[in-house]
């Protein structure tokens, strides 16, 4: 199995590197490829099973978009073929969308592989705990960002939010799911915080009856946190 970590030197904010740190433990025999800013992405010319994008600064979002624009057709083809899985956490979601509207009203054209657009509102920082349903699972996490996203087709929502907010304050639609692409504003250790989702992702990668690293401890932490998130009157920020 081959897993490509995109631009780890910039896509590494907010503890997002926890995800690949953990996946390495779950998949000790997989090959992890770290693609630098000066490298051609591996997915361009050969098959990989999972491509991961982590959170980055707003300045680096624009840098990463510029680097990936030459490959956006390839990206779109891979997403449509549903062979390669894609995972994007935090504001990596926005680079996959149509455009990012900057604070001054100008637009940065993005990769356009999913049907969303983002609007930045720096310096207003938006923080929230989030809990919701994804298929039969409960997903929990945290979002912290300067922007919101908007989608036309809400059937592409990844998580239906119960606690907290979705892609923007007026929707319970959180994240975008398109075949094997999972893009979510939830950031940090998503795969450590959500063992059910991690198992699901592993099955998407072709792992039969997946076993998680530190499975006992990870479920214990998950169950404790589920109860905490559901406490009445909890402050979300």
């Amino acid at each position: 199995m081959r897993i490509e970590i995109m631009y780890p030197e910039v896509c590494c904010l907010y503890g997002d590197k926890a995800n690949m740190m953990y996946l390495r433990q779950c998949l000790p025999n997989a090959q992890f490829i770290e693609t630098s800013l000066t490298d051609e992405p591996t997915f361009v010319s050969s098959d990989v099973d999972l491509v991961y994008f982590g959170s980055m600064s707003e300045k680096n979002q624009e840098l990463v978009i510029d680097l990936l624009v030459p490959y956006k057709d390839r990206l779109r083809d891979l997403i449509q073929a549903e062979q390669t899985a894609f995972l994007a956490t935090g504001n990596a979601l926005e680079i996959l969308g149509q455009y990012i509207k900057r604070e001054d009203g100008t637009k940065k054209e993005a990769l356009g592989v999913v049907d969303s657009y983002a609007v930045r509102q720096t310096p207003n920082r938006f923080n929230s705990l989030v809990l919701g349903r994804f298929e039969t699972m409960t997903i929990l996490g945290y979002t912290s960002r300067f922007s919101h996203s908007y989608v036309k087709d809400s059937s592409r929502c990844m998580v239906d939010v119960e606690i907290g907010v979705g892609l923007n304050p007026d929707t319970t639609c959180e994240g975008i799911r398109q075949g094997k692409l999972f893009a979510t504003y939830l950031l940090g250790p998503l795969l450590i915080a959500n063992p059910d989702f991690t198992k699901y992702l592993l099955t998407q990668l072709g792992v039969q009856s997946p076993v998680l690293a530190f499975e006992e401890e990870i479920y214990r932490a998950y169950i404790v946190k589920l109860a905490e998130y559901r406490k009445p009157g909890i402050e979300l920020e």
Binding site: G15, D16, L187
Partner: peptide, 12 residues
Amino acid sequence: KKSVEYVGWIYD
């Protein structure tokens, strides 16, 4: 007291 602390920073 009132929330659930986000501890992603421990992975950095």
